[in-house]
Design a protein around this nucleic acid. Structure first.
Lengths: 203, 203
DNA sequence: TTTATTTTCTGAACACCGTTCAGTTACTTT
DNA sequence: AAAGTAACTGAACGGTGTTCAGAAAATAAA
């Protein structure tokens, strides 16, 4: 009988509607300023209903995060496709920084926010794994072909990621104001910094 | 008459007592989990009293942050004193990362947390300015003496800072779990990453 | 010393938050 | 139509940052 299937489908649809509303609100106001009540209001349900589909706010955030990582992965698959691994690495770095600066709230809940990483150990084995793998594979190939001044791919990965994340997160959290630059100059500076770094790690 | 002076002194003492309690609680439980009520309880005053000395929670955080930056500056003045600017830069980087990893909650409210940077534009002109200046001066000297593969001191500053901050903040916010390393290995990896980076920017 | 004034402090409240649960409503099965 | 199940909600709990009228304490004036 198709009735249970329809029910299941409806359940998933409801779940997705909540996720979409959460995504919308998180992007609009950020994670902390968005309440379950806000999300419930947006989909015209009671706040309690949200808890029939998600254990708590963190689990909801986790689902939004998953979709955010899909979005970053998509960016990689569109903007970082050069067959030459070194050029691809360059594209990845530029793509990563661009993504972070263009989607500050999304970047925040992917890489900065505290919450969801404490939910469950196994979350790290899924969320963001594709993105990580894509970069790691590229970097490993660069190392194998001697295109880069790293020997250990894990160490290289850490270094590249730290630079990208450092640039984005300092900007996203307004710490670059001490540099006393105009808005356009900051963007330039960030791009220059990533280019400079790439030049430095190139063999 | 010394009575107004004593009053003023007492007011400052009270202020400091609140700051100390806040610092203690922030370090213990982090900024978000610490409430004004907790802080008030610690000093055995009513929550409302806190608001006689601080406009809001952010202003209180701002004062704690100021003392945190003093602490980092002290670390620099103790651990990064080599007369050779390049060696001093190395010491600064190592000192910075060590400080971040050893004082996660402090690092959090200095460089990661969102709140206090929105309080007032002029805050950035004071908090952390000393630390920033210390690093900047050192880097500028390195550039003047051609010890480093940078030309623009601002760009170099951004790069060095981004790397240091990237390493610390990824670790502090548990994003390095994807690397699948044991705790000791992470520490090693972070140290190696900073050494590797220094090698790469050295002329 | 007693009264008046100023300073310091607090209890209670406001509007929010995440979360739970008894009880209502809507749907499905008999 | 009645019984049973699934979906939903109103109201509450204990928490949050913050405000404010009024109590308490310290100082000044009489």
């Amino acid at each position: 009988m198709g009735i249970t299937e329809r029910k299941e489908r409806e359940k998933q649809e409801m779940r997705q509607r909540i996720i979409d509303a959460a995504m919308y609100m998180f992007l609009e106001d950020g994670y902390n300023k968005t309440s379950i009540r806000n999300i419930a209001e947006k989909i015209e349900y009671s706040p309690a209903t949200v808890y029939l589909y998600f254990k708590d706010k963190d689990e909801l955030l986790y689902e939004v995060q998953r979709q955010a990582f899909d979005k970053l992965n998509e960016a990689f698959l569109h903007e970082a496709t050069d067959p030459d691994p070194w050029k691809r690495l360059e594209q990845i770095c530029i793509s990563y920084v661009r993504f972070g600066l263009a989607n500050e709230e999304l970047y925040d809940l992917m890489f900065i926010i505290r919450a969801p990483m404490n939910v469950d150990e196994k979350i790290h084995e899924t969320n963001g794994k594709d993105c990580f793998g894509y970069v790691f594979e590229c970097l490993a190939e660069c190392i194998r072909k001697g295109l880069v001044r790293f020997e250990n791919p894990q160490l290289g990965m850490l270094s590249v990621w730290a630079m990208g994340h450092g640039l984005v997160s300092l900007q996203v959290r307004c710490r670059l104001k001490v540099l006393d630059l105009s808005d356009g100059d900051v963007d330039n500076m960030l791009n220059n910094a990533i280019s400079e770094y790439l030049r430095q790690i190139k063999r």
